[in-house]
Amino acid sequence: MLHPFRYLAPQSAQELAAMLADHASDGKILAGGTDLIPNIRNGVFKPSVVIDVKKLPDASSLRLGADGLSLGPAVTVNDILRSKDARERYPVLCACAHELASHQVRNRATVAGNVVNASPCSDMAPALLCLDAVAVIGSGTGQRELPFREFFTGVKKTALKPGEWLDRIVVPASSAGARGSYLKLKRIAGHDLGIVGVLFVRLGGSLRFGVSSAAPTPVLVDTVTAKDGPDQAAATVLGSVSPISDVRGTKEYRQHMIGVFVRRLLAEVK
């Protein structure tokens, strides 16, 4: 490793809270490491302490309970794909998980890590947004719950305050059975960051779109109604995003493809 750091592995929430308090400015939380380690290698982050949350009790627990599907902070993306409960009750979660990176990366990458980075191109965020998932946030003073629709606050920014961590993700029981599909425009068929991604979910009578790589944060659009035609739906989704031009594609192509994907998804997911 080209940047030396101390490795800490707290065994309890209290330990974790104390470590975060001690290292508010020079500590980074490690889960799968698929973002953190490349960022350290590239000199983006230079933490003097890396705090591994995988040793916390229940960190890797993936449990179906009365309140829904609960994911600990070390649950990997492939854990989701392997989970019978996720596949049968939350197929939308799996649709997004399957599009994330490659099989090898999914073995390490965690669902929590994919959202705490608040990357606009997060593949899990559209699913968590559309399924009304809740972030259970830990801290030294107890837990608080925050719906994911309030979680992303800006480019790579979340509502997590200093000393807080994402302790659990709960996908509510009320979202079980939601049907949907995720279309992700990529440069190659394999492992790629999305040029744009659109998830469409039918949950009861409600229509939801989760959009990635098209705004400073992942975006939830829940204002499309069943009465809207495809063009109206596309216009509504486009009204909620603000894509930019970069090396992966231009703003106008991103806008065009969001419209294409919205229309395609409305026809596909009946």
């Binding site: 490659s102 190659i188 394999g190 090396v247």
Partner: peptide, 10 residues
């Protein structure tokens, strides 16, 4: 990251 090459999937 942004200079992709094809993989077996392509």
């Amino acid at each position: 990251t942004d200079n992709k090459i094809p993989t077996a999937k392509d």
